[in-house]
């Protein structure tokens, strides 16, 4: 059913990773991505794996959830893997048949890229699994706020994201209800060719848009009634505070980056 779609995929918990300051988590995730891209060999990548594992084990997220996050991009991994395997022709030839040439370099790059992509997805999933979407937008607003000097609307963008996130479940529920109601009136949503299916969406989309507009209007009114005038001079209910563990996590990240740079230099396999 449509309700089963998870958006934001937050997995509630009380682990250290959950409790880290979201700004720090955001920064660490960016550093982690940098880490993966500067790693030149498998040893560097191995350090990345260790770093990811530390986060994963501390977070208490079930391994099933992590694997689920990789599933949608599996085709990309396979596709890049095939490209690397067949189009890298340097190095020693391992297998040759007609025009197909597989070299050790090709195999290496394939494995390297696959691991890198999987690590990227794991790391970023760990961020979204352990941080609620609202906290995350809050963190994004704070991180982007220095850009206000060049008139970048950090607050407005964060507010839009928050509202969008807030209304996704509501609209999904609404869609579900409208779909059920029209199905109860005999609407056929599952069969027929493309044009028929597109036409069958009309009884769902029109009520959905009507209700989205109604909600938008109500929300705008409610916000104005509570004197919302944008981000200027606004204080917060929940102040983000950094704790010693945040700096510890940052220090650990920096150490890993340093380690990878050293590994690149002295053990570039």
């Amino acid at each position: 059913m449509i309700k089963d779609i998870t958006i934001g995929q937050f997995f509630p918990g009380q682990s250290v990773i959950h409790r880290l300051d979201p700004r720090m988590k955001l920064l660490i995730t960016v550093l982690y991505i940098v880490m993966l891209f500067i790693a030149k060999g498998f040893s560097g990548l191995g350090a990345g794996v260790i770093f990811m594992l530390i986060g994963f084990l501390l977070s208490g997220i079930p391994i099933k959830m992590m694997l689920k996050s990789v599933k949608p991009i599996l085709p990309i991994i396979i596709f890049t893997g095939i490209l690397n395997l067949f189009f890298i022709t340097s190095g020693n030839i391992i297998f040759e048949w007609k025009f197909i040439k597989i070299t050790d370099n090709g195999l290496r790059t394939m494995a390297f890229m696959a691991i890198r992509i999987i690590l990227l997805i794991f790391g970023t999933s760990l961020l979204t699994y352990t941080t609620s979407p609202i906290t995350l937008t809050d963190a994004i607003e704070r991180v982007l706020s220095p850009l206000k000097i060049i008139k970048f609307p950090a607050h407005e963008i964060a507010m839009m994201m928050t509202i969008a996130l807030r209304f996704i479940p509501t609209l999904i529920e609404e869609t579900d209800k409208i779909m059920s109601a029209q199905k109860a009136r005999g609407a056929d949503l599952e069969s027929g060719n493309l044009i028929r299916r597109a036409k069958a969406l009309i009884p769902i989309l029109i009520p959905l848009f009507v209700s989205a507009f109604r909600r938008a209007e109500d929300l705008a009114l409610a916000m104005e009634c509570r004197c919302y005038r944008g981000g200027e001079g606004r204080t917060r209910l929940k102040q983000l505070k950094t704790a010693p563990r945040d700096y510890f996590a940052l220090a650990l990240t920096v150490i890993f980056i340093a380690a990878i740079i050293l590994l690149n230099r002295y053990s570039p396999i």
Partner: peptide, 9 residues
């Protein structure tokens, strides 16, 4: 359904 008027289209 509840609030059936929201299904009018």
């Amino acid at each position: 359904f509840q609030y059936p008027e929201y299904q009018l289209f």
